[in-house]
């Protein structure tokens, strides 16, 4: 800041290093609340919980809805509700703190600045996440913003919402399997072997694809791409080199281990069946 008398028009602290990561649960939560929104409500808002790592990555791990009402430039937020819910959440997981708030709809709207101001009092530099539940541009757009203050000297003039990069972390959803989260209804959860089958089928399809690609390149139908070639050779060389006999031994040993375990578990089951019959059926008297 210049020591002289002149006032400087400037933006507040830059947020260039900030980025956000959102977990699928948050999106599910927001969608659920939007589906259950009160009558005539155009959008829903709520609090985002998570953690901020020192390198400026904001992880949005959880969220809860906050009732609010909006009419002609006025926003009423149920602050008491917000605090009650926050206390309850902190009881379960004290590590998750407020990191910002969410709203449905595309982009930032008028009332957002007011709500953002409220959250600025709860946490410094909150994130504003918008989820376009209306699919206004044909896509489910999810964006994250932070506000940057425009100030003239010490006077606050305005706040500007600046978009920050958003990383959608779907690892958790992947572990559950998209198949069950994507469709509106799934009749049965896949069990061990069915899941395995699906995975192996997918692997086979991938290997087929690679074969086709390589064949096409060799025959000259497709322009060779060096980076793909490098990936393929890396993959192939990642297989450990073992002499056939050593490999056979390895496989056979593992097979036998598994056989033994299976045998043991079947024997246990037989034993259980027997014991049950003996315990309840035959009794002296």
């Amino acid at each position: 800041m210049a020591p002289s008398e002149q006032t400087v028009l400037q933006f507040g602290p830059s947020s260039a290093t900030l980025s956000a990561k959102v977990h699928p649960l948050v999106i599910f939560n927001i969608c659920d609340y939007y589906v259950r929104r009160p009558d005539q409500a155009e959008r829903v808002i709520g609090t985002l919980l998570g953690s901020i790592s020192p390198d400026g990555v904001i992880e949005i791990l959880n969220s809860y809805a906050v009732p609010h009402s909006e009419s002609s430039g006025q926003v009423a937020l149920d602050i008491e509700y917000h605090h009650n819910m926050l206390l309850s959440h902190l009881k379960v997981n004290p590590k998750e703190v407020i990191v910002g708030w969410y709203s449905t709809g595309l982009g930032v709207t008028g009332g957002s600045a007011l709500i953002h101001e409220f959250y600025s009092r709860e946490v410094s530099n909150p994130v504003h996440l918008t989820v376009d539940t209306g699919f206004e541009n044909g896509k489910g757009t999810i964006k994250a913003y932070v506000s940057v203050n425009l100030s003239l000297g010490d006077r606050q003039l305005a706040a500007q919402f600046q978009e920050i990069p958003l990383d959608r972390r779907m690892v958790e959803a992947e572990q559950v399997g998209y198949d069950i989260l994507k469709t509106t209804s799934v009749d049965k959860l896949p069990n061990d072997l069915e899941g395995m089958e699906a995975s192996i089928e997918r692997l086979l399809a991938l290997i087929d694809d690679v074969y086709k690609y390589v064949d096409n390149v060799v025959e000259g139908h497709v322009e060779p791409d060096n980076s793909i070639g490098r990936f393929i050779s890396e993959t192939v060389s990642s297989l450990p080199k073992l002499s056939p006999s050593a490999f056979d031994k390895l496989v056979n040993n593992s097979l036998q281990d598994n056989m033994l375990l299976l045998y043991l578990s079947s024997i246990t089951r037989t034993q259980l069946g027997l014991a049950e019959k003996l315990n309840t059926a035959a009794q002296i008297l």
Binding site: V35, F135, G140, R168, M170, Q175, L181, S185, K188, S199
Partner: peptide, 26 residues
Amino acid sequence: IKVSNSALISAFMTDLEGDAPVTQCD
């Protein structure tokens, strides 16, 4: 167990994650 999702969530999931050839699950 049956799993159900609202149409909105289903739309979001489909939009956010196209048909990835491999998933963490695999």
